[in-house]
Amino acid sequence: MQRILKIIIVETDPSRAALIEESLAHAGQYELLTITDMSRLTAAIADHNPDIILIDLDNPSRDSLEELRLASAPLERPVALFVDQSDANLTKLAIEAGVSAYVVDGLRADRLKPIIDAAVARFTMFRQMRNELATTKRALEERKVIDRAKGLLMKARGIDEQAAYDLLRRAAMDQGRKVYDVAEALVTTAGLLS
């Protein structure tokens, strides 16, 4: 019977951490721990002496994990970013999904694979959600600017909303630019003139 692996999830957002824990629980039987406080991160990790550490690639505190590789590090067993030459693809997938896994020396790749797979699936979802959110936000912002530009045109030229929008669209087509870019230029210029 193999020893149950201890996994630490470093994640500041508790709801995200819960989702990661949930997907790992489906992947197998592990001892799961989440660290949300980034101050004294290495000391907290040393206290728990984990086999695997999972951390968001975009988490700036990731750099302190690099200390764990040093001889003077507060951890008994050296930890390194997981790279297995036989399966470098797995690490590449993980990095593309936005998760990095630090693993103790000598842990076999076959024990690791289900964990990385589960983490990659979860982080890919996070990334998609983040991208969708960003796209929605941007669309909203662009909409606001276009509305302001329309308002400016309606006031300055005494035309209705549809005519203002047609004017913007025609200008954009003539200049080979996006309607938003023309609208933004108009709003910025108007700001200078007023």
Binding site: N59, R62, E66, T91
Partner: peptide, 15 residues
């Protein structure tokens, strides 16, 4: 990038 280690990984893995 957000950290030196992720920046290094981006180089190592060709992103």
């Amino acid at each position: 990038a957000h950290s030196w280690s992720s920046l290094r990984d981006m180089v190592s893995f060709g992103q």
